[in-house]
Structures are given as C-alpha cells and as structure tokens.
Design a protein around this nucleic acid. Sequence first.
DNA 1: AAATCATTTAATCAAACGATTAAATTTAAT
DNA 2: ATTAAATTTAATCGTTTGATTAAATGATTT
Lengths: 209, 209
Amino acid sequence: MNAHSQVDEQQSTEEKIKQAAARVFVRKGFAATKTRDIAEEAGINIASLHYYYRSKDKLFELVIGEALRRFSKRMDEIFNSESPLQDKIKSFAHSYIDFFKENPLVPLFIMSESQSNPERVEKMLADQKTVNKLEEQLRQLGDAGIIRKMHHSHFMMNLVGLTVFPFISRPLMLTKLNMTDQEYDEVLEERKKMIPEMIIKHLFLRTPD
Amino acid sequence: MNAHSQVDEQQSTEEKIKQAAARVFVRKGFAATKTRDIAEEAGINIASLHYYYRSKDKLFELVIGEALRRFSKRMDEIFNSESPLQDKIKSFAHSYIDFFKENPLVPLFIMSESQSNPERVEKMLADQKTVNKLEEQLRQLGDAGIIRKMHHSHFMMNLVGLTVFPFISRPLMLTKLNMTDQEYDEVLEERKKMIPEMIIKHLFLRTPD
DNA sequence: AAATCATTTAATCAAACGATTAAATTTAAT
DNA sequence: ATTAAATTTAATCGTTTGATTAAATGATTT
C-alpha cells in the first residue's frame, strides 16, 4: 500500500521534501546545497530525505529533470503548434515572462547545471521532440519570400535570449543601470510587447497582419 | 623586496596560482571548486596557495573581481565613447563575441556568481562609472525623433542579451537544436552582423547611414 | 659563507558533509 | 488488540574540505 493513506490535510512528506529540494537547489545550485539545508527547508530530518530519495544525487536528478522538461515542453508546445509564426513569437514572450516572474531563478539554474553536466541534458531531453515544425515553418516562409532566410538557431537564440536574459542578469543589471527592483519589474512587463515587435520587424520582409 | 627576483623564464608561482584558480573557478563555480583542484591545476601544493592568498575566499574575490571589471570596463569604454550609436552597437557585438569565443565560460560564471552574492557585485562595481553617456545619447536621439524612445535598460538587455545568451545556453541549444559544435561556432560568427542589423532596424525610425 | 628571507613540502587539525543505522514512534491492516 | 508496515528520530561513521603548522629547501643579501 502507498506510503500515505491520510489525505492531504497537509502535503505528504515525500512531496514536501521534493519541493523543498527544488527551492534550495534552484536558489543555490547543486554544489552549494547541503542535504541539511533541504531537510531544514522541508522541516524534516536528514534520514527521511534518504528514506525517500536514497541520495542527494538522485534527488537532484529528479528536480532538474522536472525543471528541464517543464522548460522544454512549454517551448515545444508553442513552436510545434499550427499557429502563425507571429502568434508563436508573442505567445512565447508572454508565457515565459509570466512564468519566470513567478520563478525568477529557474533560467539561471537550468543554464548553470546544463553547463556543468551537458550529458545529463542530452539524456533528459532525449525523448522530447525537437522544434522541427518550427524549422519547417521558417523554411516555408523563407521560400515564399515572406520572411528573411536564416538558420533556425538564430531565431531561437534571438527570441529565447531576449526573453530570458533579463532574468539571468538581474543582479548585474540592477547595479550597472542603477535601477530599483520595481523599475526592473515594470521593464520586464514592457518586454512582452517589445520583444515580439523587434523580432517580427527584423524577420518579416513585408509587415504581417 | 619582491618575492621574485628571478625573471619569468616561467611564470611566478603567485601568478600561476591566480590563473589556475581563474580557470577552475570559471569552469566549476565557487562552491564546486576545491582548493586541491586549484593546487593541482597550478601544479603546486595547497600550502602555497594559502601562503600567497590566505584563503579560498580571498582568492575567489580576486578572480571574480577581475572578471567583473574586465566585463564591465570594456562595456563602459564602448558606450561612454563619442562614437555614433550604430558604431557602438556594432563594436559591442564584435568585441564581445570575439572575447567570449576565447572565454566561453566567463559570461555564465559572472551571472551565476552575481546571483549568489549580489552585494559583492555592487561593491565591486561601485567605483565604475555607469553607462550614463549612453543614456544621454539615447535621450537626445529620441528627442530628435531619430530613434524610438525607450528606457535604456531595454537597449542594454537587447544588445547584451542577444550577444551573451548563445554562450550561456550553448549546451542546451546544442541538444535542443541538434547542432554540432562547428555549426554553432559558425552561427556565433554570423551574429556579429545579425545582432546590429536587428537592433538598428528596430531602434532607428529612419535608417541611418 | 653566514644570515636572512622566500617558497615548498608533508603531515595534520577541526569542521562540515553525505550517508547509514538501530531503535522509537506513528499509522494502517487484520 | 495485535501485528505489520511506514516514518521519524538521534547518534554516529568515514570522507572530504579548508586551513594551519613545523620543518626542509632554495634563493638573495650582506
């Protein structure tokens, strides 16, 4: 029988641990995170952590796996849909800026841990379909003379970079540009419009609807 | 008298340690770096490390300080010059893409460690002049109806983001877009042209020279 | 060449860490 | 109520880690 028969008047211990681990890992990265940090954040003992997840590594694999797949899945859903390209662009900017406003540390977490263990990224995204419907769409519109021809990687770097970078560079930018947190948040909101405008203006040879 | 009277038929131990530390710190981040890693990379003993730099923390402060200032200083030189805005944009893209091709791990290193210790960034860039000549330039061109009016943070996020993001996201992009390292490097080279085109097209209301 | 200073070595310390265990306690099943 | 299973607790193990030390070696100066 399952570990928990009592329904969630509160979260199960197993779930509490996982979510606490996610918070701490995302905040501090794998190396700087101590199992004792996680236990404290979850309000449980270290032994319980090992009881459910065997080791720090196993727990981390789980956490980063979910983060990676969430990040990647949403991307694929948008790009592999049947929508017009302009809609995909707008949809991406809106969706990800909203998501990262709630989870501002996730992008840097993913990038950092991808860097320090690239093979893991490869394994974890192995099943995920790539963005080949997007690639096809770019080719078609390019052949039709509607958009500028370019490698689809440029398109992705532009769109994802413009969207994600402000979250990754926040501390640096705040200092360098001498801004308050509130000002920064307002700027982030403005980017929902600005990013699509910029990309569409550059990409489309004649202005779309 | 100085520690070394023998001239550099080879590097001084002190310098060897600092450069080894820079490499390891940038590669693995502060928390994942062990003093023993640094000693091994430098080909010296741990005690020598403490002899010259007292502690891991002090050594790290030095390394990240130099990285931050190099990153920031070059930026200020470009933006606070008297050049036309279009030239600044092109100059930035070229200069930084070249630099990061040689030091591909530096951007993520700076972003990560800035995130995990924002106060340090603040202290270390305290003396550095901000990019206020750029701000002024943007305001003037905006008032003159030459460029679109926007907060200078947008401009910086756009330019820096487009330039830096491909280096930060390299492992993820390679997997997601199913590219080879060589293809990726070619794309990076193309971006020296593409980034200024894109930004100028969006920014300038009538096309500049 | 004696004396002083710089540098390296090898050994070791205390603290922090991930992990494990046996036992206690709580919860569920019979 | 008794038994069995799930979960928590507190204690502890073996390593790793940053740091330090005393002594050995090397170089420079006087």
